[in-house]
Design a binder for these strands. Structure first.
Length: 427
RNA sequence: GGAGAGAUGGCCGAGCGGUCGAAGGCGCAGCACUGGAAAUGCUGUUUAGGGGUGACUCUAACGAGGGUUCGAAUCCCUCUCUCUCCGCCA
């Protein structure tokens, strides 16, 4: 959520900034509602004041045994009038809030202009894509011996789920351990375990609700819970409705969870394989920082995610998302894209974002600024470190040999009992 | 699932329907005292929103939401969470 003051005092400037990302702010409507809100609030508070004053007078009169009937007559009707304006104000405020919850974040000045993916800006590349002396096979092909079983998943559940067997499943698990160990032991993150089902307050806090309900899986029945689309939701909401001491900042959490996304199937994109699934594992980095440090933190967090790819020796590039490709809550985002030889393309494997105070305002997540003594909004960031399923795909495709065996990356060997190769045959 | 108890400020803990944003204590901050400190004393110490250039002022909040009332922390209803006991369970 944007600072409501921006909509009151700098609406034109705010509208211009939002226009950069292709969002049209309904200035006329907001200004009209805002004006009415102001009048109504002043009026309501006047009436409340009147009521309070009269009630105190009645209290005093009663205590001294005076006849209170004339006083009672005076306030007759006030209650009705007050109730009416209060209700009206409430409705109006709810309307304004609904509008505010639907407005995306303002892009940071360093976020490049653009309308879609094609306008994203490459920042740097790492690693050389390997030259294959044979035509490389994609992961579906490599897993066809039984390591990856999409048919079984479709039978058990439906499309866009995966069953992973044998050594491939083991490597999938090993990747999670490897990532968690790296971030906790070398990058200063604290591991956390969280619920995979969350309430609507949490989803509103990080920005999935109310606008993106359709992207989520929701429980039917008596619990009004959603499955998490990312660990970002439970982990960031750890600080919801809190005022943190200055000394606890920055908070750095790393968390492995499954992620559930219903939007995945709707694009007709990446229908083959396990690139785009309704369920996947992810190791997520979340930071809660002081506002002045958030852009430094974004660079550091991005490097932390990159380190995973470097240790696994997977070629990748970093792109800065343009304003048109930016997520709803983000002010600036770096995507990490890993090289997939069979697609001859870099494909997204991590997304690292600074949300500034956008999520913090929705969550009422604050810290006590020791110089002002006042509670102020924190800045929140997160990034994948990394998406595990896609990492497995990248390893399969980049590390395959002509027999369809997968060489185990050096960094992963300790997690696989020193194994050199795995054969994705499901055994 | 059954039975019961509870939820008040950073923490503990009072609170008869009226002057209660809330006693008292602890903690914290400032000042005094001191060579310095401890102890002691005094003062201050929630959050959000509105109005005002500002001093300031108004409104709201005692788990959440509704209700009764001129007036609710206090009475009534619903819900959530916590604790105890029983049952069940990985």
């Amino acid at each position: 959520m944007l600072d409501p003051k921006l909509l009151r005092t700098e609406i034109e400037k705010t509208a211009d900034q939002l226009a950069r990302r292709g969002y049209t702010l309904n200035r006329a409507l907001i200004s009209t509602l805002e004006e009415r809100r102001k009048d109504l609030q002043i009026h309501t508070q006047q009436l409340q004041n009147e009521r309070n004053t009269h009630s105190k007078t009645i209290g005093r009169a009663k205590a001294t045994g005076q006849n209170i009937q004339p006083l009672m007559d005076e306030v007759a009707g006030l209650g009705e009038q007050l109730k009416q304006t209060e209700t009206e104000l409430e409705t109006l405020q709810a309307q304004l809030l609904a509008i505010q919850l639907d407005i995306p974040n303002i892009p940071h000045t360093t976020t490049p202009n653009g309308t879609n993916e094609a306008d994203n800006q490459e920042i740097r590349r790492w690693g050389e894509p390997r030259q294959f002396p044979f035509p490389p096979r994609d992961h579906v092909d490599l897993g066809a011996e039984g390591g990856l079983d999409f048919e079984a998943a479709a039978k058990i559940t439906g499309s866009r789920f995966t069953v992973i067997h044998g050594q491939l499943a083991r490597m999938h698990r090993a990747l999670i351990q490897f990532m968690l160990d790296l971030h906790t032991q070398e990058h200063g993150y604290r591991e956390v375990y969280v619920p995979y089902l969350v309430n609507t307050d949490s989803l509103q806090g990080t920005g999935q609700l109310p606008k993106f309900e359709a992207d989520l899986f929701k429980l039917s029945g008596e619990f009004n819970y959603h499955l998490i689309p990312t660990a970002e939701v439970p982990v960031t909401n750890l600080v919801r409705d809190r005022i943190l001491d200055a000394e606890c900042l920055p908070l750095r959490h790393v968390c492995h969870t499954p992620c559930f996304r219903s939007e995945a199937g709707s694009y007709g994109k990446d229908v083959r394989g396990m690139i785009r699934q309704h369920q996947f594992e992810k190791v997520e980095l979340v930071q809660i920082v002081r506002p002045e440090e958030s852009y430094k933190a974004l660079e550091a967090l991005t490097r932390h995610a990159e380190t995973v790819l470097q240790r696994l020796e997977l070629p990748y590039r970093v792109v800065a998302l343009c304003t048109g490709d930016l997520g709803f809550a983000a002010a600036k985002t770096y995507d990490l894209e890993v090289w997939l030889p069979t697609q001859k393309k870099y494909r997204e494997i991590s997304s690292c974002s600074n949300f500034e105070d956008f999520q913090a305002r929705r969550m009422r997540a604050r810290w006590r600024n020791s110089t002002t003594g006042k509670p102020e909004l924190v800045h929140t960031l997160n990034g994948s470190g990394l998406a595990v399923g896609r990492t497995l795909v990248a390893i399969m495709e980049n590390y395959q040999d002509e027999h369809g065996h997968i060489q185990v990356p050096e960094a992963l060997k300790p997690y696989l009992g020193g194994l050199e190769f795995i054969v994705p045959d499901g055994r």
